[in-house]
Design a binder for these strands. Structure first.
Lengths: 97, 97
DNA sequence: CGCTTATTTCAACAATTGTCGAAATAAGGA
DNA sequence: TCCTTATTTCGACAATTGTTGAAATAAGCG
């Protein structure tokens, strides 16, 4: 959850989503984002660690891709645990009947 | 998005969701969370500002409630903008036809 | 092997966020 | 009005996160 809490990382992730299955190299991403390579690398790791982004080596370049299943799981968690509907609100403790 | 990026705030929010429409007073929340009143107040503000939580005064106590519609909007945003399915992946730039 | 490109790691520092206790404010009751 | 309860604001400091340039590592090519 903290991974996407940073505006910079959310932007990186969205950029990768828009790139689709093709993915983007770290270098291309750097051009898009306009930040130091080390900074970008730092943020990418924070997306790769929890599995939101995967990396694949192609010779000397690393291709990054958004991992939709992990994002879907996150969305599912939010929907289930953090967004009760009227039905679950009915599970509230109530005095007597 | 940053609002829920903090583990502490996510915990506060989830606690409020579980409390349902009844909500919880700041004081009760303080007992649950075990932190200084000022710290809690600080985090609550960061949930109230973006509208994730609403507050209602009842005499000297403030009742906090999770605002599901705002959360649903957030989930919708994530689903739409950040979690492309195969169909939208097909919108990728492709060379020729 | 030495060279080139691509990316990460390292070390330092800036900026933001989290935390707290003490004092201030809000609401109501004696 | 003065007192009590409930919460926020303030001021300070600790902890985490973000940022960078320089050096290290990875992969492949002459």
């Amino acid at each position: 959850m903290e991974s996407l809490g940073s505006p910079t990382r959310l932007r990186i992730y969205r950029t990768l989503v828009r790139a689709g299955q093709t993915g983007l190299s770290v270098g291309t991403l750097q051009d898009c984002m306009g930040m130091a390579a080390s900074t970008l690398s730092h943020h990418i790791r924070r997306l790769v660690d929890p599995g939101l982004v995967s990396q694949e080596r192609v010779a000397t370049t690393l291709i990054c891709r958004a991992e939709y299943p992990v994002m879907r799981a996150l969305i599912g968690y939010l929907a289930d645990e953090c967004c009760a509907d009227e039905a679950s609100a009915g599970c509230q403790t109530k005095i007597s009947a």
